[in-house]
Write a protein that binds this DNA or RNA. Structure first.
Length: 427
RNA sequence: GGCCCUAUCGUCUAACGGUUAGGACAACGGGUUUUCAAUCCGUUAAUCGCAGUUCGAUUCUGCGUAGGGUCACCA
C-alpha cells in the first residue's frame, strides 16, 4: 500500500440530505486518503433522475465543508455518459453484453463461486446464485450504479473503494465486470452499519436519521462529529477517546474498523462535544455562545457561567428560554420567605443581609471581582453556625431563583451598585 | 425463504490462546459546596448457548440462537 498512490472517493447520490451513515463512509475514505497523502474525490452519482432531489449536491458539499472533509476532485456522473457508452461498447464487442428491451445487459459467461478479499471483513465469498445478468445501461440511456461506479473508479484510478456493507452482496457482479474488462479490481473497504438509538435497524432517513447539518444547527462542533463518527465502528486501541481530526488521521487504521453495527448514542456524543468545546480558546467559546444570545445579552462576564452549563452551543438558547439568565437583565421578584435558609429565621436573615451590605460597601467598584466578593462574604459566613445563613439569602436576593450560579459570580456580573441595591431591597 | 456476514458490561469498545476480562458514556453512591452547574473519588455491570481442539479458550472449529445486509432498468 505504501508504494501506490492512494485514491479514494465518496460517491453519494443526490437524493436528499446527508445523514451520519453517509458521513462516516465519507470520513473513512477521507481519512484513508489523507493518511497516505492520497487523493479524495467527491463524485455525484446522479444516474437515477427520478429519485434526484434538487439542491442535494449543494447540500452535500456544504455538509462536507462544514466537517472539513475537503475533496481534491469533483465530478458528476450525468456529465460523463459518453465514457460509460465507450465502456459499454467495449463489453458489447467482446460479447459480455447484449441488448434487452432497450436496455443493455451484462452477460454472465460463467456462473461460478466468487471469492475476494475485503480490507475490513477479510476473505469473503458468495455462491454462483449471486451472479445473474444485470443491467448496465438503462433504457433511458443512463448507466446503473453497478456499471457506472466501476467505470469511474477505473477512469479515476481509485485504489480503495470505501462503502457500506449493503454492497457486499453485489460484489461478485462487480468483479465479473472487472474481469470482462481485463482490469484488476481495487481494494474493497466495507464499513459496518450504524444502527438507530432505539431499535436494531440500520439508521436510515425514514428511521429518524438526521441531516448532518442539523447537528450544526444544534451547535455541535464539526470535530466532535468527526471524532464520534470515527469511533463508532473504529478504535485505534488504547484508552484515549478524544482526538482532533489531525490526530485521527495519524492513528487511522483500516484493520481496526469494526464489522458489526454500532448503535448511535446522543449521550456519548454530547459528552464528547463538551470535551471538544473545552479544547477551544476562550475567544472562540465566547463567539459561539454569543451567536445564540440576542445582542443586548452579549456580556462577556456571562460566558463562564453559561459555558459550564451546556454541552452544545444550542443549549444557550434553552437556558434563555428557561429564563435562567433573566435575573442578570431584569430585577427578579424575591419573596421574603424564600430568603430564609433552612432552619434560620427572618430576623437572622435580615441582619445577615445587612452585614453583607456593609462588607461589600467596603470593596472599591474597580475591585468588585468574584474573588473579592467571596473573601468578604466568607469572612462573615464563617462566623455563623451555617454559612448558608448568609450565602443563601444573598444568592436568592440577587437571583430570585432556587437554582442559580453562586452569589459571588452573580455579584461580580451585576456590579457593585446593582448588587447593593438588590440586597437592600431584600430587607 | 436462499445467499453473505456479525456476536464482550444498558451503549461505544480494549484484550498477537494464559489479564482479578481494561477504558469511556450512561446509571447509581459519595467528597467538595449556599442551590444548580462544574469538578474529584467510588460502585454496579459483559465474553449469546452447546459441543469440540488445547495443559489452557473472549480469542480456533462445528452446530444452534439472535441480529444485520442483499436478492431492481435504486444506489
Amino acid at each position: 500500500m505504501s508504494d501506490i498512490k492512494v485514491v479514494t472517493r465518496f460517491a453519494p447520490s443526490p437524493t436528499g440530505f446527508m445523514h451520519v451513515g453517509g458521513v462516516r463512509t465519507a470520513l473513512y475514505a477521507w481519512l484513508l486518503a489523507r493518511k497516505n497523502q492520497g487523493t479524495f474525490i467527491l463524485r455525484i452519482e446522479d444516474t437515477d433522475k427520478e429519485r434526484e432531489v434538487e439542491g442535494s449536491i449543494e447540500h452535500i458539499k456544504e455538509s462536507l465543508k462544514w466537517l472539513g472533509l475537503n475533496w481534491d476532485d469533483f465530478c458528476i456522473q450525468s456529465e460523463r455518459l459518453d465514457i460509460y457508452k465507450k465502456y459499454a461498447d467495449r463489453l458489447l464487442e467482446k460479447g459480455f453484453a447484449y441488448s434487452d428491451g432497450g436496455a443493455l445487459r451484462f452477460k454472465i459467461i460463467e456462473k461460478k463461486r466468487t471469492q475476494w478479499h475485503d480490507l475490513v471483513w477479510g476473505d469473503l465469498s458468495a455462491g454462483e446464485e449471486a451472479l445473474e445478468d444485470f443491467i448496465l445501461i438503462k433504457s433511458d440511456g443512463y448507466p446503473t450504479y453497478n456499471f457506472a461506479h466501476i467505470v469511474d473508479d477505473i477512469e479515476m484510478g481509485v485504489t480503495h473503494v470505501v462503502r457500506g456493507q449493503e454492497f457486499i452482496s453485489s460484489t461478485p457482479k462487480f468483479l465479473s465486470v472487472y474481469e470482462a474488462l481485463g482490469i484488476t479490481p481495487p481494494f474493497f473497504v466495507t464499513t459496518p452499519p450504524i444502527l438507530g438509538e432505539k431499535g436494531t435497524k440500520k439508521l436510515s432517513k425514514r428511521d429518524g436519521a438526521k441531516d448532518i447539518l442539523d447537528y450544526k444547527k444544534e451547535g455541535y462542533l464539526p470535530e466532535t462529529m468527526i471524532n464520534y463518527l470515527a469511533f463508532l465502528g473504529f478504535n485505534p486501541g488504547g484508552e484515549r477517546e478524544v482526538y482532533t481530526p489531525e490526530e485521527l488521521i495519524k492513528v487511522f487504521d483500516l484493520s481496526k474498523i469494526q464489522r458489526s453495527g454500532a448503535k448511535w448514542s446522543d449521550d456519548k456524543l454530547n459528552w464528547m462535544n463538551k470535551e471538544h468545546m473545552k479544547l477551544l480558546p476562550l475567544k472562540e467559546i465566547e463567539k459561539n455562545i454569543f451567536e445564540f444570545l440576542s445582542e443586548d445579552m452579549r456580556n462577556p462576564k456571562l460566558v463562564p457561567i453559561i459555558f459550564e452549563r451546556i454541552s452544545k452551543w444550542g443549549e444557550v438558547k434553552d437556558m434563555v428560554e428557561r429564563g435562567e439568565l433573566d435575573f442578570f437583565f431584569n430585577l427578579p421578584s424575591v419573596p421574603k420567605e424564600k430568603l430564609v435558609y433552612k432552619n434560620s429565621t427572618p430576623e437572622k436573615t435580615t441582619s445577615n443581609l445587612k452585614l453583607a451590605v456593609q462588607a461589600l460597601q467596603n470593596i472599591d467598584e474597580d475591585n468588585f471581582t468574584a474573588e473579592n466578593v467571596k473573601s468578604a462574604l466568607m469572612l462573615i459566613a464563617e462566623t455563623l453556625p451555617k454559612r448558608g445563613e448568609l450565602l443563601h439569602p444573598v444568592r436568592y436576593a440577587l437571583s430570585g431563583l432556587d437554582n442559580s450560579p453562586d452569589p459571588f459570580i452573580i455579584a461580580y456580573i451585576l456590579g457593585k451598585n446593582e448588587t447593593l441595591s438588590r440586597l437592600q431591597k431584600a430587607f
